[in-house]
C-alpha cells in the first residue's frame, strides 16, 4: 500500500528563479537562435538565410581543426591531471599543521584569476626576462612559444596542469579523508600491499569524486579562453586557437553575428550533450549504490 501522493506544488517556489534565469539565459539564448537563421545587418536590414550558417560552420575547416584541437587539449589535460591529482592527494599529510599548510599551498593557484595566470606564464616563458624561458635558452634548448607550436602546446598544457591539478587533488583528498579507518585496519590484518590498498579500497571509494573532477575539468577545459589567449593569442599561426577563441574572433572581431550565433548553438549543444552524459552517469552510480534511497 503506497498512498503517498507526490506534491508537485513545491515547484512553484522555483518560479522566481525561473524568471531570473529567463532574463539572464533563456531569452538571450532565444535571440541567439533567431540570429543564427538570419543575416542581421542593422535594425531594419535583415535577411532570412535558413540553415546556411549552420552548413558553412559545420564545413569550415578552420573550425573543425579548432574542434579537434579542443578535444585533444581536454583529453590531454585530463590524462595528466587526474592521475597526478590522485598521486598528490595520496602523499599529502593526513593531520597536524603540515596538513593545513600543504592544503593552503596547494589551493593558491586556484585563487588566481585566469587572465593573471596567462600573464604570469607569459612573462615566465619569455626568453629575455622570464625565468623558464631564459633558463631553457641558457641550457641550449631552442624554446620559443611565439615561433614553435610544440613549445606553445607544451606550455599551455603545463600552465593548465599547474592551475587546475590542485582542484583534482583537493577533491581526491576529501574523498580519501572520508574512508573509515576500519578499512585500513582490515587491510593491515590481511597484510595487504600498498598497491592492493589503493586498488581495492582507495580507488573504489574515490569513484564519485573522480567523476565530479573529470566533469568539472572537462567542462572548464572545453570552454578555456583567457589563459591561452593571454599566453599565446592562439598562435603561432592558429596552432593553439581553441573553440571559444574562434567564437570570440568571429563574433567580436569580425562582427559576423549570424555565423557566430550558429557556431554558439553547435558549441552549446556539444556541451549540453557531454554534461548530460556525465550527470546521468553520476546519478546512476549513486542509484546503484543506494537502490532504495532514490537520487
Amino acid at each position: 500500500m503506497n498512498n503517498k501522493v507526490l506534491n508537485n506544488r513545491a515547484w512553484l517556489l522555483v518560479l522566481p528563479m525561473l524568471v531570473l534565469v529567463a532574463f539572464s539565459a533563456i531569452i538571450p539564448l532565444m535571440t541567439v537562435v533567431n540570429y543564427s537563421v538570419q543575416d542581421v545587418l542593422g535594425p531594419n536590414a535583415r535577411f532570412f538565410t535558413g540553415t546556411e550558417w549552420f552548413h558553412s560552420i559545420l564545413n569550415d575547416s578552420a573550425l573543425r581543426d579548432a574542434f579537434v584541437r579542443q578535444i585533444l587539449f581536454s583529453l590531454t589535460i585530463l590524462a595528466i591531471q587526474v592521475p597526478l591529482g590522485i598521486g598528490i592527494a595520496l602523499i599529502m599529510p593526513k593531520r597536524g599543521w603540515q596538513a593545513s599548510a600543504v592544503l593552503i599551498l596547494i589551493t593558491l593557484p586556484l585563487l588566481i584569476p585566469w587572465n593573471v595566470v596567462g600573464s604570469i606564464w607569459q612573462i615566465f616563458t619569455r626568453g629575455d626576462i622570464g625565468l623558464m624561458g631564459y633558463g631553457l635558452r641558457e641550457l641550449g634548448i631552442n624554446y620559443n612559444i611565439t615561433r614553435n607550436s610544440g613549445d606553445a602546446w607544451a606550455t599551455i598544457i603545463l600552465m593548465d596542469v599547474w592551475h587546475w591539478t590542485p582542484l583534482v587533488a583537493m577533491l581526491c583528498y576529501s574523498g580519501l579523508r572520508s574512508i573509515p579507518e576500519a578499512y585500513y585496519q582490515a587491510a593491515r590484518i590481511d597484510r595487504a600491499s600498498k598497491w592492493a590498498i589503493f586498488r581495492y579500497i582507495q580507488l573504489p571509494k574515490l569513484t564519485n569524486v573522480l567523476v565530479i573532477a573529470v566533469l568539472l575539468r572537462f567542462m572548464h577545459s572545453f570552454m578555456i579562453y583567457a589563459e591561452p589567449f593571454v599566453l599565446t593569442g592562439g598562435g603561432p599561426g592558429s596552432s593553439t586557437t581553441f573553440l571559444s577563441q574562434s567564437l570570440a574572433t568571429m563574433a567580436i572581431g569580425q562582427q559576423d553575428l549570424g555565423p557566430s550565433a550558429a557556431f554558439s548553438i553547435i558549441y552549446f549543444l556539444v556541451i549540453l550533450l557531454v554534461s548530460w552524459v556525465f550527470y546521468t552517469t553520476i546519478m546512476h552510480m549513486q542509484k546503484d549504490k543506494n537502490p532504495h534511497g532514490g537520487a
Binding site: 531569452i27 532565444m30 535571440t31 537562435v33 533567431n34 537563421v37 535594425p43 535583415r46 532570412f48 535558413g50
Partner: peptide, 15 residues
C-alpha cells in the same frame, strides 16, 4: 521584442 529579431520559423520552433 524587435531587438530579438524574431522570424516565423524560430517563433514556430519555440512555440
Amino acid at each position: 521584442m524587435s531587438w530579438m529579431v524574431w522570424t516565423t520559423p524560430t517563433a514556430i520552433f519555440f512555440s
